[in-house]
Every structure is written in structure tokens, then in C-alpha cells.
Amino acid sequence: MSFFAKRQTTAGSSSAAANIAAAAANKPWIEKYRPKTMDDISSQEQAVAVLKKTMESQNLPHLLFYGPPGTGKTSTILALARDIYGPEMIGSRVLELNASDERGIQVIREKVKNFARSTVSHNIGCPPYKIIILDEADSMTADAQSALRRTMETYSKLTRFCLICNYVTRIIEPLASRCAKFRFRPLEEKHSKERLEMICRQEEVNISPEAILSLIRVSEGDLRKAIMYLQSASRLMGKGTEISEDAIADIAGTVPESVIDGLEGCWLSREYKKIATEVQNVIADGHSAAKVLSQLHSRLLKNEHLSPLQKAKVAEVFGDMDKCLSDGADEQLQLLSMMTRVSTIAA
């Protein structure tokens, strides 16, 4: 073995550099195209403008970012930190904690507090405070959050906190009132489109304009989802082939329109057998009941056979089913029950 060992290592070291390059190329696009500076951020104008102002004044308040997933909350704070500190200082001045780290009350008391109270050496061109980013703060326990309260105030000279969450209601009031709140809206169509087209150009992805539009539609303002789908599609199709609308629908896991048509058609028939087989097929094909429900729901308003009163009743049934599903009830039974109830209403 030792005879071969040397040769292997030499071959290895030469390919190591190639490997690193390959790793960079293999980076997921969501990381690769994360905005690097505040100027790169193309949407959320209001929040970005305010943040830029505060950056100039060297006086950053505590921040609370909230909004649906994929709207650029984490990207914004990372870009902000990079702008303030530059790439060298960012490691020592920023502490990033997210839900994958242990964030019980213990950690808040020790790790966060220790980081918060350590003073920073004075550097020119660098503000005299550190930033602690608490990502996904809504998954922190209320106890851990209340442990932060006084810490935030006591060390506010040395440290700024940035809380990021999806639901502002899950942040306890005393914390929320200490922060400047920024709401992140779902991205507008034109911004998503710009960004996606830019990525397509850079990555040489061949995609039809309709497919981009459907990509934006299925992602519902979540840019990360859109980019992820785009990358998956381009990988599945291989380079060169054009990505079609159908491919996007396939990857996004949307239920085909024909299936939804079938279910909707069942509403008008009062026959149990027909409904049961239809439901059985939907489940056996592996479609998720939640997705089926949300697609049926978007169809509901356009339905011509139902009166407004009936629609209202159906909406109530949908609500019940969603609750049951999120509690973990059996999908087939729930779907069956929903279909039969709706068909009774429609009759």
C-alpha cells in the first residue's frame, strides 16, 4: 500500500485546488446570489432606505425584522453587517445564532451575555458596537426571550441586537418594544423577475418567459423558493434544454389541474362511490392533501355552480379540514370527509 501512497497524495493535492473551485461552482444559487452589500438589495426599498440612513449616523437601534420566508430578512442584516464592518472584522464583531443552535435560557445567560458585554477595541472606520443576530427568533422560548430583556438594555452601548422572525406576534411585547421594527413584504413581481432573469443570464439557463412567470406565481413572493426551484429545474433538465412551464409545476409539487378538475367535478355528483375512488387515487398518487386543499380553495371563488351562501359554507369546511390536517389527522379520511360535506352542501 505504501508504495502507492505517495502517488495518491500528489494526485490528491493537485486535484484539491480543482475541488475547491468545484465546490464554489456547486454552491447553491441561493447562497451564491445572496446580495453582498446593501446596494445589491433590489427590493424592500423602504426598509433598506431607513437602514442606510441609520448606518450613516453611526447609531443603529436594536432591530426587529419580520415577514414571510424568502423575503430577504437574513440577507439584509448580513449585507448590513458586511457594509459596516468589512469582510475582516465581521467574524469578531457579529454573533449569529439561529434555531439550529441551542438557544435555551442557559445560552442566553452565558454565551449571549458574555459576547454582549465584551468591549471592542477601537478601530477607525468601524463603529464601536457589535451585532448579535438572533435568526428565527420566533422559535425561542418565552423564557429565553425574557432573559434577553435586561441584557439588551444594559449592554446597549456595546451591542446591538437584531431579531429575525416570521411572526412578530411570537416575540414577547417587552422585546418588541425595545426594537425598531421592519416589516418585509412578499417580493413584488417585477423585482423577483429581475433577479431571476439576472441569474438565468449568469448561469446560462435556457428558460421560456412563461416559465419565469409561472415560477413567480408558484413561489408566492418567496424569492428563495423561486431560485431553488429554478436551480432544481435546470439541474433536472440538464444544460441546454429549455425549461418549460410544466417542468416548473412538476418541481414545485403543484397538483396537476386535471386532478383538481376531477375533484371539483365530484362535488356535483352525490355518489359516494365516485368520490371515494377519486380520493383514493389522489392519495395513492402521493399528492399532499394540504396542497390539494389550497388549490381547491383558489378555485372556489371562480366556481360557477355554487351560490355565494354555498361558497361560504364550503369555505368553513375547508377551514375545518386545514385545522385537522395540521393536527396530523389522516389525509385520506379528511379529504373524503371534506368532499362528502361539500357535495352535501352543493346538492
Binding site: 399528492h287 399532499s288 392533501a289
Partner: peptide, 17 residues
């Protein structure tokens, strides 16, 4: 089923049915 997988995870994965 994907019903019980939270949105952020779904948006990070390639869904294979």
C-alpha cells in the same frame, strides 16, 4: 406527506413525488 413539513424546509429541498 408534505403537509406537516414546514414551508422553509420545503423551499430548501427538491420535492420528489
Amino acid at each position: 406527506t408534505t403537509s406537516k413539513i414546514i414551508g422553509p424546509i420545503q423551499s430548501r429541498c427538491l420535492l420528489v413525488r
